[in-house]
Design a binder for these strands. Structure first.
Lengths: 220, 220
DNA sequence: GACCAAATACCATGAACATGGTATGGGTGG
DNA sequence: CCACCCATACCATGTTCATGGTATTTGGTC
């Protein structure tokens, strides 16, 4: 990291704030401010033209969202990092920014942002995130787990043979083909299938496949 | 929050560290240190007996994981908060802690943890999280989005009638039942089914259901 | 602990019967 | 032209019933 200055793009539509951030970055010897943009258009141009290590961007811009800038950056410079500095703290903005590829997210109201520390963090593979923003991520992840854990469906247990057969009928094999593949008699196949029906409370092949898919017994 | 002191449980097996943290909390007028525990057993007892606002816990304890303490807290005091202070930064530990209900997660190696700030943060509904830990959450969320957005499959178009029929065979209806439900002739049903087979490149009911489920044409 | 019988679960088979799949026709309306 | 509808008929396939073999587990006795 200390080998060469970090090439940084800064995007922020509010002039005083942008100049303040720019002066902080400019005063640091570890960084080189490639572009200081006040809207999306300038940012796109900066992304197209230069080698970039880091994009620091606001979200609400006069001609669109900073998230689009992050997406453009990810497309053009996959190894570059992106960090958001915004007043927005709603779930939609935060999650969309993360999805687009942002690794850091600082709230503007944070008292005296330590920008250089944040830049060092994000370039070292960490994620500087304001505690209010982090709560959005935490809630999202704990909710996810909660809901996926809430589906307490007691799925019936199928024997290995039954699983083989089930996979076969999902693939559309006939009794004969199935018997061939499993090296058993053509007459044995239906017996397993019958047991499958009982366990899945189905009464024919298609219903069994449907239930199996619903219960996650076969991978689609 | 300023009305009454926060009732806090502190769990940390390393004596010097625990005493240092305890002294920090003790020196703050806004908190009351209800219990200072060095293992899981003591923590469980403290959770059972008292009113609690916040649990601050290490993860690696001599008799188990602090995550179990968090789960116990969530069961007994649903409105209480939990915060982790640990050296562990692996994905498993972090996500399990979040899932269990932790709202904050500080790395022990953080230079001079500002514990009081972190406590204020977590009790104000924010999530104080070290940047290295935050990266785990960010990666998790962006990966999720990436994989769910990657499914770009061009699924065939079914007519309304065909969709009806498809749903019917997934439910295991026979030709006759299907004809009855849709008020059409029993002989017409196979025609639609045949068209479905063509579009889905299937050759029988079960394979059609399987393909339809895989393509997301029927909701499980 | 060693032994054996009963119970259980899984796998297998053949024959009789019901259903599904396919190939023919053709007809209506947008 | 396409989506939808109806009809007849043949044959392959799926479904059910009745039955037996094998391995593992259970529980009791010596």
């Amino acid at each position: 990291m200390a080998t060469r200055p970090l090439k940084i793009i800064l995007t922020e539509d509010d002039d005083p704030i942008r100049e303040r951030l720019a002066s902080i970055v400019g005063a640091w010897s570890g960084a080189e401010l490639c572009a200081s943009c006040s809207n999306l258009e300038e940012t796109f141009a900066a992304i197209e033209n230069r080698e970039i290590d880091l994009l620091i961007t606001d979200l609400r811009l006069p001609d669109g969202s900073g998230i689009e800038a992050i997406r453009a950056l990810a497309g053009k410079h996959p190894n570059a990092e992106a960090m958001v500095i915004s007043v927005l703290a709603d779930e939609r903005s935060v999650l969309d920014a993360i999805e687009a590829g942002a690794s850091g997210y600082l709230l503007k109201d944070a008292d005296s942002i330590d920008l250089i520390d944040a830049i060092k963090d994000v370039m070292a593979g960490r994620s500087p995130i304001s505690s209010r923003i982090a709560r959005v991520l935490v809630r999202r992840l704990s909710d996810r787990k909660a809901e996926s854990g809430a589906e307490e469906i007691d799925r019936p247990t199928l024997t290995t043979r039954e699983t083989d057969i089930l996979w076969g009928i999902a693939k559309g094999f006939t009794y004969g083909e199935l018997a061939d593949k499993l090296a058993i008699s053509r007459q044995t196949v239906p017996v397993h299938i019958r047991n499958i029906y009982r366990k899945l409370q189905a009464s024919n092949r298609s219903e069994a496949v449907f239930e199996a898919a619903r219960l996650g017994l076969i991978k689609l």
